[in-house]
Design a binder for these strands. Structure first.
Lengths: 135, 135
DNA sequence: GTATTTGCAAATACTTTGCAAAACC
DNA sequence: GGTTTTGCAAAGTATTTGCAAATAC
């Protein structure tokens, strides 16, 4: 919900959202730029960044901060957890996790007003397990 | 545990660790640089970064990735959760949280080998609540 | 004495921004 | 037609790195 400004449906914004919705790989801004450039060769990286910002502010996509010092993006706007491979770096979604009731339990031990949480798991993905890769 | 290399106790490394242990504010690398510079005026920011890396690799401190695109550091090597104020940005520790048994519950729904997790809470800190500050 | 670490400066990685032209509604 | 968005390039912010000199052990 932008305040005052009316959000337009530009070709660039549309394609960025479409491409991001196609994948489950949680790409970085530059990876999205590479994907989108195949359909819109003249698009600039700055436009990609600006649109990712707009789309995440309006709740159509999500930022994921599971890499140090750069963001990844998730075309799935629904809240869910992530798991990252400590060997190959791949990031998967985790659905159907039990509800840990963390906000509620946590509010009993602190005088903060809790508005949300972020939970990420780390581990070894099936491909790395199978290949016997070590850190 | 560095492999092969023997880790030395330099003046810089010692002071960085001491200063970080003194505070509970989870400073950024540059904030640590400012703190340490008062005692070692000739230290360079690069040295601070290199030592923070060494210290976190050896488990004496922790990196916390709760800001987008920069790291904070925690002089407390013990595992614990964090809570960040969505208004003023302050980051506090959360101790004595109940054990959610998340690794165990999660391993039943995925074929990854889970090695750890990270959990951060977001909310409004007592100071911002009291001051009635809004986003 | 030798391997590690430092200070410095330059380089790198990622992201943001100013501005005139183009696109949207 | 007026406002938003784009492409481009430059700037900004955080972090890393090459190297000769200094330090730790």
């Amino acid at each position: 919900m932008p305040k005052g400004k009316k959000q337009r449906i530009t070709r660039q914004r549309k394609v960025i959202l479409e491409e991001l919705r196609k994948v489950t790989s949680h790409p970085t801004a530059d990876e999205i730029y590479q994907m989108v450039k195949k359909r819109l060769p003249k698009i600039s990286l700055g436009t990609v960044y600006r649109n990712l910002e707009v789309l995440s502010k309006s709740g159509e996509i999500q930022k994921i901060d599971v890499d140090e010092n750069r963001l990844r993006y998730d075309g799935n706007p629904k809240e869910h957890y992530h798991i990252k491979c400590i060997i190959c770096g791949r990031v998967d979604d985790l659905h159907d996790l039990p509800d840990f009731k963390m906000e509620k339990k946590t509010s009993t031990i602190t005088d903060w007003e809790i508005t949300g949480h972020r939970l990420d798991f780390f581990g070894i993905c099936p491909a790395c397990l199978k290949a016997g890769r070590k850190r």
